[in-house]
Design a protein around this nucleic acid. Structure first.
Lengths: 98, 98
DNA sequence: TCTGAGTACCTTGCGATACAAGGTATTAAT
DNA sequence: ATTAATACCTTGTATCGCAAGGTACTCAGA
């Protein structure tokens, strides 16, 4: 059922901080949402391609450099839109639950 | 984003009343969720095939007879499970929203 | 020095979901 | 008999998420 929620959750994560893939996987896991690498990387690439995310390389103390993703201005607007969609889904489910 | 929500919404609808396809489309529309016929019919067939829904034919005063769908016992249990999943998604989003 | 373990990024193939478009069948009215 | 309305269903396409597999960089230890 969480289909389609992933994009929203990832953008929520990036609203206040930049993250690289493993950060995202771990933080989502703490919020009880499991994401696979094979799901995450293509999704990040797509959001980058669509101009909603940008990234910058940063060195790591142990291991290869990391891609830190950040929300672009377009991304913030898209996120606002997703917030609205989420509210609508909440309303829908609440109506149907009566 | 509402991908995957449809099954849940339809089963919520059927929790307290039986419906045929156009009922479902109209009621979901009232709850601000748009469903296409080409989406709904295969979904209903699948839920029937999986034993979560049953149906009975009923005559209509104007037009061909209608398939009224109802939740089976298995369907009720599956719906309870979906309720739990929904609660989990609510928790996840709330955590990520801070 | 080179080899293996750990980390990080990415791709390919598959199944499932939803939509758009089109098709079949029954009923009632003209 | 034909048409309009209603109701059910199928096919083709796009997207999403997962499983599995692959590449590349870094560092520690043999």
């Amino acid at each position: 059922m969480r289909k389609g929620m992933l994009e929203y959750c990832i953008m929520l994560l990036l609203r206040h901080q930049s993250c690289y893939a493993n950060d995202i996987i771990q933080r989502l896991q703490e919020a009880e949402m499991i994401v696979m690498e094979g799901t995450l990387y293509p999704l990040l690439s797509r959001l980058k391609r669509d101009g909603l995310l940008g990234y910058e390389w940063r060195e790591s103390t142990q291991g290869p450099p990391r891609k830190y993703y950040v929300l672009t201005k377009d991304g913030q607007e898209a996120l606002d839109q997703l917030d609205a969609s989420w509210e609508e889904i909440l309303r829908t489910v609440n109506i149907l639950k009566n």
